[in-house]
């Protein structure tokens, strides 16, 4: 097995407004991660792209913007567990995958914000609610569920949700979202270095 492929980091997004967040964090991580490491960084235009990249992946870090009102400016760390996205907002140390997997089941009922999806205007409910919409109807949760059904799901999936407010085509990235790009990359780097040092 090619160990380089074992940890996959994917920024989901588009070129529009705060929906760029996933791509920009992926770009930042690609710059920071050392050559020859066993991390692979990719950018997805639509969540369905993910399915092509999951072979031999043990850990998936997914970065996407969220359209969320009233959830503050903080980046949210979420854990995919048995068909649901569970909140797991902890310090970098506490967010080690081995610990994060023990997110409480009661968290599933938490009201969570919406992922912005790969293009502006796409909204994906992460906990409950109707299925999200994306290319041909496949949202990030849909794609993860499909991967689960077909046995392609990595052992650990961490979603980094970056709050945004501007998703119109051609819009500039908001200052709030811009501030979170390097911060998110640093958090992910810290988590990777703790877990895989």
């Amino acid at each position: 097995m090619n160990t380089r492929d074992m940890i996959l980091i994917v920024g989901v997004g588009s070129a529009h407004g705060d929906d760029q967040a996933g791509w920009l964090v992926a770009d930042e991580l690609a710059r920071r991660l050392p050559d020859g490491s066993f991390f692979s960084v990719r950018k997805a235009s639509v969540p369905l792209d993910l399915l092509d990249w999951l072979g031999n992946i043990k850990v998936l870090h997914l970065i996407d913007a969220i359209q969320a009102s009233g959830c503050g400016e903080n980046v949210r760390r979420l854990q995919w567990n048995s068909g649901a996205m569970l909140p797991c907002e902890r310090s970098s140390d506490e967010c080690r995958p081995d610990r994060a997997e023990r997110a409480p089941a009661s968290s599933r009922d938490d009201k969570l914000p919406e992922l912005a999806g790969a293009r502006s205007g796409l909204r994906e409910t992460m906990a409950g609610g109707p299925p999200g919409r994306s290319s041909h109807g496949f949202s990030v949760p849909d794609v993860l569920r499909l991967a689960e059904q077909t046995g392609m799901l990595p052992e650990t999936i961490v979603v980094w949700a970056i709050p945004g407010s501007s998703f119109q085509p051609g819009a500039r990235m908001s200052e709030q979202c811009q501030n979170n790009i390097c911060r998110t990359a640093t958090q992910i780097m810290a988590e990777l270095s703790v877990a895989y040092a």
Binding site: L51, D52, P131, G137, F138, D142, R145, L146, Q149, T150, G151, M152
Partner: peptide, 26 residues
């Protein structure tokens, strides 16, 4: 209702379809 639901009944076929799609993308 969806490919996800279909995959519960036909996991082999849906997985095969996904692999075919991936080869096109490759």
């Amino acid at each position: 209702a969806s490919g996800i639901e279909l995959a519960a009944t036909f996991p082999h076929e849906v997985t095969r379809g996904l692999k075919l799609k991936k080869l096109g993308n490759d």
